[in-house]
Simulated assay, not measured.
Amino acid sequence: MKQVERHFGGEPRLFGGRAPTVHAVQGVTLDVKRGETLGIVGESGCGKSTLARMIVGLDQPTDGAIYFDGQDLSALVRQDRRALARKVQYIFQDPVSSLNPRKTIGRILESPLKHLTDLDASGRQARLRELLEAVNLAPEFLERYPHEFSGGQAQRIGIARALAAGPELLVLDEPVSALDVSVQAQVLNLLDDLKQRYGLTYVFISHDLSVVEAVSDRIAVMYFGRTAELGPAEGVFSAPLHPYTALLMKSVPVPGRRDLTSEDAYAELPDPLNPPPGCAFAARCTYATAQCTSVKPELSQDIGVDRDHSAACFHPLSRTI
């Protein structure tokens, strides 16, 4: 994706003027390498889910473009949504509510096979059995309804549905946040197995840093609709460059740890209706200068040891600590 923007509001009002505009995503440029897991983290409201919805075509960028194998996804949505659905699929945060309560699991899983593949009835039945086996569910589950399953089982069904048409990219929006910790581990192990088996690429969105660290090859840290830091998972967690990333790390509860850090109680969070001219994190940053409040920093690779590790900061931690 290149310089992707997504604004909400701004429509002309009946008696003049325009409605306020919320800047949900602002100038995000990211690439996802084939076969990797790109983790996207950040606080609630930073634009993670909006970005996910644009990747799968559920929403359209206000500006910029998202490409898949060199093809503009926005154009693909307009021309052939089925072609996009065969390439990219979405796994939802709430597994139970993402399944139609009026339909059996068999009908839910068969629907994408009918609309996105050329399989006949016998072929679809064979594919259904294959999907259930892939996510470790029994064949008799096909005759049951969503309310008969636990959250972990429902998420496995959601994963099977996403795999039905054989996509290359899965966008996972908080896929385990609604599950118990023990069940989270089972689902994460399943996702890792499926990635290896089918050669999948993941965009894994979460606010849980421990989960993202465990599954990601690279990590993009978002703040106020922009990319604050981007780099290999090991580098981002062991030596963060952006002060916001460091704040996120210090805010994670760890057994026996008593020095949790939170943002300054008196710091003002940015107004999404009126974005600041400079760095959106400046009001919460102890290293902020006049430059930070007036100029918007861009991602730079010239501030860390690893050339693949970049941050949008004028005073990165590699130079201030």
Rank of each mutant, 00 (worst) to 15 (best):
V4L: 03
E5S: 07
R6H: 13
F8V: 12
G10E: 04
L14G: 03
G16Y: 08
H23T: 00
G27W: 01
V28G: 05
D31K: 14
V32N: 09
R34K: 15
R34V: 13
R34F: 00
E36G: 01
V41P: 13
C46E: 09
K48S: 10
K48H: 11
S49P: 08
A52Q: 02
M54S: 06
V56K: 01
P61M: 04
T62P: 06
D63F: 04
A65T: 12
D69L: 01
G70E: 11
Q79D: 15
L84M: 13
L84T: 14
K87P: 04
Q89W: 10
P95Q: 07
P101R: 07
T104L: 00
I108C: 13
P112W: 14
L113G: 14
L116Y: 10
D120Q: 07
L132M: 13
E133W: 02
A134Q: 11
L137H: 09
A138N: 10
P139T: 06
E140Q: 14
H147P: 09
F149R: 06
I157D: 08
G158S: 09
I159C: 01
A160K: 03
R161P: 09
R161L: 12
R161D: 13
A162S: 12
L163S: 09
G166H: 01
G166C: 07
E168M: 02
L169N: 04
L169T: 00
L172D: 04
D173H: 08
S177H: 06
A178T: 05
V183R: 05
V187E: 11
L190N: 05
D192E: 15
D193L: 12
K195W: 06
T201H: 11
Y202H: 05
V203W: 12
H207W: 07
D208F: 02
D208Y: 02
E213Y: 04
M222D: 12
G225P: 08
A228R: 09
E229A: 09
E234Q: 15
S238T: 14
K250F: 01
P253V: 03
R257K: 14
D259T: 01
D259W: 13
E263D: 03
Y266V: 00
P270K: 00
N274S: 15
P276S: 15
G278N: 10
G278I: 12
C285D: 01
T289E: 12
A290W: 02
L299I: 08
S300C: 06
Q301P: 14
I303Q: 15
R307A: 14
A311W: 07
A312F: 04
C313F: 10
C313G: 13
R319G: 08
T320H: 01
